[in-house]
Design a protein around this nucleic acid. Sequence first.
DNA 1: CAGAATACCTGCGGGC
DNA 2: TGCCCGCAGGTATTCT
Length: 286
Amino acid sequence: MPELPEVETTLRGLYPHIMQQKIVQVIIRCHSLRWPVPKNLKQNLLGRKVSNLERRGKYLLLQVDQGTVIIHLGMSGRIQLLSLNIPAQKHDHIDIAFSNHKILRFTDPRRFGFFLWTEHSPLLHPLLKDLGPEPLTQSFTGNYLYQKTQKSKVAIKVLIMNSKVVVGVGNIYANEALFMAGIHPQAPANTLSLKQCRQLAVAIKKVLRQAIKSGGTTLKDFLDSEGRAGYFATALQVYGRDKLPCMRCQTLVQSMRLAQRSTFFCPTCQLLGCYPEQITKRVGKY
DNA sequence: CAGAATACCTGCGGGC
DNA sequence: TGCCCGCAGGTATTCT
């Protein structure tokens, strides 16, 4: 379900309601998530106060004074904030209740998500320590991306979805950013020019920012912490548009499998080994 | 080492 | 109607 914009949407929905709140109840109905839910999670959280909530890539970090819960939503995970004690449904695995009577409820049919506990700096945790830069910060630049592409022959789409290169870019936004930048998803990374890398970095930032503004993308089941759908799906240019006309040039959008992921592109706007000049106008100045 | 394939899990839609 | 298949927003692990 969630890429960076959906996790960010979840974070913003939760933050004002749970900051500084005391945890008064923890219910773990299912321990077998992507990683087993730690046996001591409940006792570590009970009676503690939420001192911070932040995002790193697609990870949510819920901090109390004594440690941090590292949360990932996987493919189908979702967090709701409930005001009433609504009976748990089939895939409602974890509830955290706060002193203001709000309840954080984690739901995840496929159970690829997880809740882990660490008493050290979460950024040093094995799952987070090798993550690349945040795409929406100044540390992620076209020059940086170019330097990474030079060292790899993998398809550029695979490269930008690699969290060691840059975090938060999942399948939807990888497709969208490559379309915006006019780059073929299969282009070997080391064949991109510096100019293309700059355009791609800009496109990634633009797509993610726009998606966050829209509250994320709801394909079928993404809802924010208040249960509302994101509306970026209506702004998608290529994702899911197989055999439909390109929004720019009317050429039929093509689909293919790339590293086991659905990939969509316009064969006219995203020519392999060619860089249309008009892209600069489309993406904007770097 | 890089890069590709596989594994985890449930639900849904399409074809027969 | 029901069964079987492929596919789904992620990513660690295992393979070649």
